[in-house]
Design a protein around this nucleic acid. Sequence first.
DNA 1: ACCTGAACACCGTTCAAGT
DNA 2: ACCTGAACACCGTTCAAGT
Lengths: 233, 233
Amino acid sequence: MTKGFSSVWTREGRSAKSTPGLSRDQIVRAALELLDAEGADGLSMRKLGAKLGAGATSIYWYVANKDELLELAYDEIWGEMVIADPEQVSWRYAAASFGKSMRQAILRHPWASRLIGRMPAIGPNALRATDRLRHAIAVAGFEGLEIDYAISTLTAYVFGMSIPETAFNEYLAKEEPDEEAMRAAVTQAMADYPEMVKRVEAYHNLDASQVREMSFDFGLYTVLDGLEARLVT
Amino acid sequence: MTKGFSSVWTREGRSAKSTPGLSRDQIVRAALELLDAEGADGLSMRKLGAKLGAGATSIYWYVANKDELLELAYDEIWGEMVIADPEQVSWRYAAASFGKSMRQAILRHPWASRLIGRMPAIGPNALRATDRLRHAIAVAGFEGLEIDYAISTLTAYVFGMSIPETAFNEYLAKEEPDEEAMRAAVTQAMADYPEMVKRVEAYHNLDASQVREMSFDFGLYTVLDGLEARLVT
DNA sequence: ACCTGAACACCGTTCAAGT
DNA sequence: ACCTGAACACCGTTCAAGT
């Protein structure tokens, strides 16, 4: 028993022009503010209504449900992902710039992590960004299904680094664990694995966010090298 | 204002032996059943209590909160991730086997996707699995911080493929969109990007899960090639 | 056309009270 | 030591009713 298909992007919007009361734009902007300020759990229809000086249920006039609202908010993040022009620079540089830009957009809006894959990314910003990456990959020389595979490989890597990173940042913000206590507990849990303890201790005096960036770059170039190897064959 | 550090794995368990009433094991097993059967949203303390023939709040005697319960459940998934012995096979084969095994474990337990990175993976199963991957990467020839970078690159790729995949599966299961309607809507949304439409149409007669597997393997070997390139340098 | 409040069916968690 | 029920402070969503 299917239900057709529905997405904000394929429904007729309510009166895009007239502005007697609220507007979809206004609602999305307010939702973004709430999400950026308080995280994914900070957005509730009641809070959003209050912020807009309206009843919680007024929002349902503009949006079918909370998921549609999140679809709209999610697409804004795609708007922040930029890519260098692959006609001007090497495809590697273009792809790398996109990867870094994706990561930054997600780190700026950690709440977006939870939405990745949860809804088809077919908003205008998502399509524009994806098409540009597709173009860069095509310029590189990939053809047919390998275009999609290459795109997936790159975006999966970026998502896979960024999603856990934001999740852990949220954990840190919420739980505020004592760093020393945490390290002690972790090394204790690793008592049976001395090599793992060494790994943890290697980071003792390093700046965490710098290490994450170095780690991200390492993997990014790894993926690009791997893609290049696929082109030669 | 930090709060020390707390995790199920570093707290004293409540009476691991005596079994007058419930037990932590029993609770975790029931939670896993609920999660596997109904997904991440299917687990509530009330439902879990009912399943165990107890009050919802009885669980709080064995577990500090729902997050601790999820930590316990999450570690079970790590127990399903296996790796070939890197002393017997090539490190590439070992790493590939781990990657495939990770993906399968996540696909079997889609609810685990949401937990990735949200809590330190320091349960016994997570540690054992991670240590084995670390060993394979060390056998390959990586040293120092690059061991961690290489591990992160591989796991990020697998997570980045699997998380959106499970999220989309959950979306499909919940919304049950009509396939034809969805494809029509998507291609319509892509009206301005003819090259993207071509990409979508390329999948018209292909088996979706087969394509996902091919795509996963493509990326996995891409990552492994990239890692190998890093070793030579 | 747009907005409202009440109501429904849920949540996680706390806590005093029971045995 | 273990379990309970009531209560608190929330959720998303529906819907009849208002203007």
